[in-house]
């Protein structure tokens, strides 16, 4: 395989891993949040703030991976 192909392949793996990991992370986060909200509806405002914070934290690493992947493809 030539170098260009390897690069695209690497980028593809990075992007897909980033996508899968974010999907799993958000699924767990959202699911737990809904569970918690269903169990204690009065806690929703508190939980929501924390949900957004954790969403931000969770998003970060997959976003970094996605950036690396995209940079590999396009530059």
């Amino acid at each position: 395989m030539e170098i260009e192909g390897i690069r695209i392949l690497a980028a593809a793996i990075m992007l897909s891993c980033a996508g899968v990991s974010t999907a799993i992370g958000f699924a767990m986060l959202g699911g737990k949040f809904l569970e918690g909200a269903a169990r204690q509806p009065e806690m929703v405002p508190v939980l929501q703030t924390k949900l957004f914070i954790i969403a931000g934290l969770l998003d970060a690493f997959s976003a970094i991976a996605a950036v690396m992947g995209l940079l590999l493809i396009f530059t």
Binding site: D59, A63, I64, V67, L70
Partner: peptide, 17 residues
């Protein structure tokens, strides 16, 4: 720093693409 940088670059990159 990397969290902010990564997220913003990803968003910007999507716009550029």
């Amino acid at each position: 720093a990397l969290r902010l940088y990564g997220n913003m670059l990803a968003g910007e990159l999507v716009f550029i693409i």
